[in-house]
């Protein structure tokens, strides 16, 4: 396995780099080729108080007077060397802006990830083992409810109930532990739904297997059977979903941070969109692509190790045929 695995790993890593570069180019084209010229509009906006000299400098730095292809090559060259440019809005280096915002978003997204896994496991466990058939049925439809509620509605309801009525946290101090927890919950609820659906489908499948019957006949309690035998095989498809979830978390952060008034990457995006701050937008999207592709790569590389039955080749085939649709 090791040799073919090494080759598989290398190939996947190379593929990941290509996708990141293409994502950068794609974003660049979307921002600069589509109608409307955000940079020039923004520069010419009298409110910025930029002198003609300063405008000339910025135009020269970004090569805005040159053809798009040259601009793209310049921009790509800077990206590869780690230079993300300067924010048009604040004149700060983009890397500094993102660096300042990152810890807040990582805390939020990390907490949300843990919460969503916890919620999904609780739902999946309940669907299998709740004593009442009626309760199991209700619980089974919870993921589809979670998928139907917009992120911002969840946030507003949580704020309304827990901040305004129960005073469990205040929106004035969005970085407090309690406020972070509720913001993370807002982000976690829609994300937990597809995870729960996959877990439910796989637990349904695994608990019908003969080894589960054998284990039960040996007198294993349901909780033990669940923890010892069923969780591991059911988690594998969930691990493959982790990259999709990370993407959801990054996208959802834009709204969650806006609602809870947190200063994070989402707020940076929001400000950059309103002020047409192109270098910041470009950097955030590229960063998101890097994170997404890296997590995806790690999940792909981990799968054959988690399940020895998947050798590198069949894993590759399975992945390319994998449907995005959540199983019924």
């Amino acid at each position: 396995m090791s040799r073919s695995y090494g080759r598989y790993a290398l190939l996947r890593a190379a593929q990941a780099v290509v996708v990141i570069l293409l994502a950068y180019i794609g974003t660049f084209l979307v921002i600069s080729v589509l109608p409307g010229d955000p940079i020039t509009n923004m520069l010419r906006d009298p409110q910025n108080g930029l002198t003609d000299d300063e405008i000339q400098q910025i135009v020269a730095h970004y090569g805005l007077d040159k053809p798009v292809v040259i601009q793209l090559i310049l921009s790509l060259g800077r990206f590869v060397t780690g230079d993300l440019g300067f924010s048009l809005q604040s004149n700060l280096p983009v890397s500094q802006l993102l660096g300042d915002a990152l810890p807040s978003t990582l805390t939020l997204a990390g907490t949300a990830l843990l919460l969503s896994v916890a919620i999904a496991v609780v739902i999946a466990y309940g669907v299998q083992y709740l004593p009442s058939r009626w309760a199991r049925g209700v619980l089974r439809s919870v993921p589809s409810l979670f998928l139907s509620v917009p992120n911002f509605v969840v946030g507003l309801i949580l704020i309304e109930i827990f901040a305004f009525r129960l005073h469990a946290f205040t929106t004035i101090d969005p970085d407090s532990a309690a406020a972070t927890l509720f913001a993370a919950l807002t982000l976690a609820i829609p994300v937990s739904a597809p995870l729960a659906e996959v877990l439910i489908a796989n637990l349904d499948h695994e608990s019908r297997q003969e080894y589960a019957l054998v284990a039960r006949s040996r007198g294993l309690s349901q909780a033990r059977l669940f923890a010892r035998h069923l969780v591991k095989p059911s988690m594998l498809p969930a691990v493959a979903m982790i990259a999709l979830i990370v993407g959801e978390l990054l996208g959802g952060a834009v709204i969650t941070e806006t609602i809870f008034g947190r200063d994070g990457l989402g707020t940076v995006v929001q400000k950059a969109v309103t002020s047409q701050d192109v270098p910041v937008l470009q950097a955030v999207v590229s960063l998101a692509a890097v994170v997404f592709v890296t997590v995806n790569l790690l999940a792909d590389l981990a799968s054959p190790l988690l399940d020895p039955r998947l050798d590198a080749k069949s894993e590759r085939d399975a992945k390319s045929e994998r449907k995005v649709v959540v199983p019924v």
Binding site: Q15, G26, T27, V30, G36, E248, L281
Partner: peptide
């Protein structure tokens, strides 16, 4: 086309929508 799809998938869909709408108006 597979790479094109990979790239579209690599950018979180909501973030992609936000960037496109900010570019279009």
């Amino acid at each position: 086309l597979g790479r094109v799809v990979d790239v579209l998938l690599a950018i979180p869909s909501f973030l992609l929508a936000v960037v496109i709408v900010s570019s279009l108006g």
